[in-house]
């Protein structure tokens, strides 16, 4: 099929940036979206033009490196997937596809479609861990049985890949789903209880300092999350936060 791509081009962080049109032909429906961009880039290199910069790595939906805001949706029109898992069969001949970076104050553009998501890392530095040294001299892994339901729910929260689709989809650029998922993973496990108070307070504080917005419960983040991280995690974080604040 033949398509028209409207792609955000921005030389570097200081450049103003603009949308540029690129026609592309003979796209196979079996191609992944990023493979389609590979083909475009190959043709740009041949023409001595600069290829479009975009982040990607594992290309199987787990590393969280790929992003892209495609036709107004984080990771494009399909559900439960990342951009690298999006296939061209979701589009039809003659379509125009708009491709932009994930936009948020806390995610400055580095170049073209590549953004800086290190704010997510800094939130994790503030409390996204259990303070146990890696000596191996802990208790036996089966010493504390954990209710299967809690363990499964903790796992579901821990499935977050840190891609930032939640932030890009939120009209307030809120990171509550991302932070809520991490807080929930530990809140649901006995091992996470010891530091629960400090963890939620510190992570939320860092989240605010990074310039992420507030949650107004529109639920857009949950819809666009490639891993189906549930809004319940935000509610759980709010409960944890309230509990921690009262303990003070």
């Amino acid at each position: 099929m033949n398509l028209t791509l409207k792609i955000w081009r921005q030389k570097n962080a200081n450049d103003k940036g603009k949308m540029v049109d690129y026609p592309i032909s003979d796209v196979s429906p079996d191609m992944s979206f990023l493979e389609m961009l590979d083909v475009l880039n190959e043709s740009l290199v041949q023409k001595n033009e600069e290829p479009v910069a975009f982040d990607h790595d594992c290309r199987e939906g787990i590393c969280g490196m790929c992003s892209l805001y495609i036709n107004g949706e984080a990771h494009g029109p399909d559900r439960g997937i990342t951009t690298c898992q999006l296939h061209m069969r979701m589009f039809k001949d003659g379509d125009t596809i708009t491709i932009e970076p994930f936009r948020a104050t806390a995610f400055p553009v580095i170049k073209d479609l590549v953004v800086d998501r290190s704010a997510f890392d800094r939130i994790q530095h503030a409390g996204g861990f259990i303070s146990v040294n890696t000596s191996g001299n802990t208790i036996d892994a089966n010493a504390i049985p954990i209710n299967k339901h809690d363990a499964d729910e903790s796992f579901e929260a821990a499935m977050c890949i840190g891609c930032g689709a939640c932030v890009a989809s939120c009209k307030n650029s809120s990171a509550m789903l991302f932070v809520g998922a991490k807080v929930s993973q530990f809140a649901l496990l006995p091992q996470g209880q010891v530091e629960a108070t400090d963890r939620v307070l510190n992570m939320v504080k860092q989240m605010d300092e990074e310039g992420f917005g507030n949650c107004t419960n529109t639920g857009a983040c949950e819809v666009e999350c490639p891993k189906g991280i549930s809004l319940e995690n935000i509610a759980r974080m709010n409960r944890e936060y309230l509990k921690a604040s009262l303990k003070g």
Binding site: I139, A141, I146, A151, Q191
Partner: peptide, 18 residues
């Protein structure tokens, strides 16, 4: 042992063990 102490949510059986 180490990973469980760090909060890695491994799959569990209904009895709560790994």
């Amino acid at each position: 042992d180490q990973c469980v102490a760090q909060g890695v949510p491994f799959a569990r059986e209904y009895g709560g063990l790994l």
